[in-house]
């Protein structure tokens, strides 16, 4: 079953209600800045034509969202499960605090992509960014996998201060470690074959979504960033 919702003139609340009432897969056409599309939703597919507003797929709980265009800030904020595929760029704080599911961005991401991502038990969030990432990539990262491929866009693969406050998870960057400046509490090294095996399935899925050649994408040096400690602030305090 599938249906179509024309979003022209609908408020975010109205669009939310229409999506709530719809069953099966839905195509939203003429989306123009409506926020919170798919917030908290599970078990359905939503294809969005146009540009959704901020907090697309916030608290997403298993639904699959596909955007045929750019998305704005806070894509997949506190996402629990599901999949978000963006055929374009995303704004700031994509994947903020996500703890499950996958986000695939064909283009680039703004500031603070993957900030405070976390994993737990069987949940492993993954975000693959095809282009470049802004500053503060993976800030406070507590788990999950962040991949930035640098296949499009210009300049360094990530902006300033990547992985600041990182205390869990892994970041893969398709570049050499010396190309970026990392904070003291993380280790950035050239990823080995074994390291790359762990992300290969996600990069493969990325290539599938956006028609890229997997071997070509993998045929480059990758940097793996991991935190030195899960307890980075332990030494800072004295009981009073």
């Amino acid at each position: 079953m599938s249906c179509e919702i024309n979003a022209r003139g609908l408020s975010a609340v109205e669009l939310g209600q229409r999506l709530e009432a719809a069953e099966g897969s839905v195509t939203v056409t003429e989306c123009l800045g409506q926020r919170f599309v798919g917030a908290g939703m599970d078990g359905r597919r939503i294809r969005i034509e146009g540009i959704p507003g901020n907090a697309l797929g916030a608290y997403l709980n298993g639904a699959a969202l596909e955007v045929c265009g750019n998305a704005q800030d806070a894509v997949g904020d506190t996402m629990n499960d599901g999949e978000i595929v963006i055929h374009g760029n995303v704004g700031d704080t994509a994947g903020y605090a996500m703890r499950g599911g996958k986000i695939y961005v064909e283009g680039s991401a703004g500031y603070r992509a993957g900030v405070h991502m976390k994993e737990y038990a069987g949940k492993l969030p993954v975000m693959v960014i095809g282009g470049r990432a802004g500053s503060f990539l993976g800030e406070y990262q507590a788990g999950g996998i962040l991949v930035v491929l640098g296949l499009s866009g210009r300049g360094p693969i990530a902006g300033n201060f990547p992985c600041t406050g990182m205390h869990g998870g892994r970041v893969f960057l398709r570049c050499r470690p010396e190309e970026l400046l990392f904070p003291q509490q993380v280790t950035a090294r050239l990823a080995g074959l074994e390291d790359l095996e762990a992300v290969r399935p996600y990069i493969k899925e990325f290539c599938g979504h956006f028609g890229k050649d997997l071997e070509e994408v993998l045929d480059a040096p990758f940097t793996l960033v991991t935190p030195d400690s899960r307890n980075p602030y332990r030494q800072m305090y004295v009981a009073n």
Partner: peptide, 21 residues
């Protein structure tokens, strides 16, 4: 607590000062 907070056991639970968004 790990189950309730949905974070790994033994990992610091850091609430940053600002909401990043």
């Amino acid at each position: 607590i790990s189950r309730t907070r949905m974070i790994p056991e033994g990992s610091d639970a850091i609430s940053p000062a600002p909401h990043h968004d």
